[in-house]
Computed example of a mutant assay.
Amino acid sequence: MTSEPQRLQYLEAMGLTAWVARYRLPNARPSEACEWEAPAPPAPVAPAERLHALLEEAEPPPARQPASVPPPPTPRAVQPGRARQMLGGGAGEAGSGLEADIEAAGPHREAPVNQAPLRFSLQVACLDDRWLLLIPGGEPPTDVHLNLLANLLRAVGISLSRPPRFQGFRWPPVEGLPAEAPLEEAREGVQAFIAGAGRHGWAPERVLLFGSDETLDRVLDLAGEHCELLDLPGWQGPGLEALANSAQAKRALWPSLVAWREAWRSNSGEASLPGPGDEAPGDD
């Protein structure tokens, strides 16, 4: 049976206040008097002694080391009052010491600055899954442009098994997002788009860029006859609209068309024979 002192202690531990009658009710049995000595309060301990006691309890016992292993180097002694200086006292000395610690830790790295992303759009197709055909702009080429392209290729003996099918690409894909490295992120986006199109069976061997766009030129980095972004042989010339309206542009394109014929046949394993279009294409 639980004694009255224990019951009161349980109630106090549970946060319940014991109720004791102050008045004796009529015909009620008198309450038993309970007297016990309250436990003596613990002796006050200084904060420094409590801290040292906690540190001694948390410190693991030193591990025994073999005799052949040299003892670890002695840690650098902490300057007296260093913690107090860093927490508030001695602002000048604490600041200089903190700067020295930061410089010793390593070079300062600046937080990335958000910038506006590059903006461009282009139309992408692959000639018989071999040659990438790029046209700057958001609108696909018209039937007039496609017929002109087919006539130019047919003139030098490049026959396609099917007409090119263009896909649009726009950067950035989502508006309102800042960029930390606009050029690098745009290049990665184009590379990911071309790599994802490989599910259609594309195996790019060469890049043909009809037209010019300042932003797209920076992304593709098509210098000379090589596309640095895709690491493929490349060519850049006038747009299909300019070729459709200029006979001079068609004649200037003829040397490139002859080189395309040789590259197309050499990669496909065909013999390099004179094609039916050894003469420069006309204005039509």
Rank of each mutant, 00 (worst) to 15 (best):
T2R: 13
E4C: 11
R7D: 14
E12V: 14
E12M: 15
A21M: 05
A21Y: 08
R24T: 15
N27V: 13
E32A: 14
E35A: 14
W36Q: 11
P41W: 03
A43E: 07
V45N: 07
A48I: 07
R50P: 04
A58M: 11
P60F: 05
P60M: 06
A63K: 06
S68H: 13
V69H: 14
P70F: 05
T74D: 09
P80A: 03
P80Q: 04
G81Q: 02
R82Q: 10
Q85W: 06
G88Q: 01
G89V: 11
G90I: 03
E93M: 08
G97A: 11
A100E: 04
D101P: 05
E110W: 08
Q115C: 08
L118E: 08
R119N: 10
S121Y: 13
Q123W: 00
C126N: 01
L127P: 00
D128A: 00
L133E: 00
G138R: 11
P140K: 04
T142V: 02
T142F: 00
D143L: 07
G157D: 04
F166Y: 04
P173H: 12
G176Q: 04
E180N: 10
L183E: 01
I194A: 03
V207Y: 00
V207G: 00
L209T: 00
R218H: 09
L220D: 00
H226Q: 03
C227M: 01
L230K: 02
D231L: 13
Q236E: 01
Q236A: 03
A242Y: 07
A242P: 03
Q248V: 15
P255C: 09
P255V: 10
S256L: 14
S256V: 13
L257Y: 11
A259F: 09
W260K: 02
R265G: 10
A271W: 13
S272V: 14
G275W: 13
E279R: 14
D283P: 14
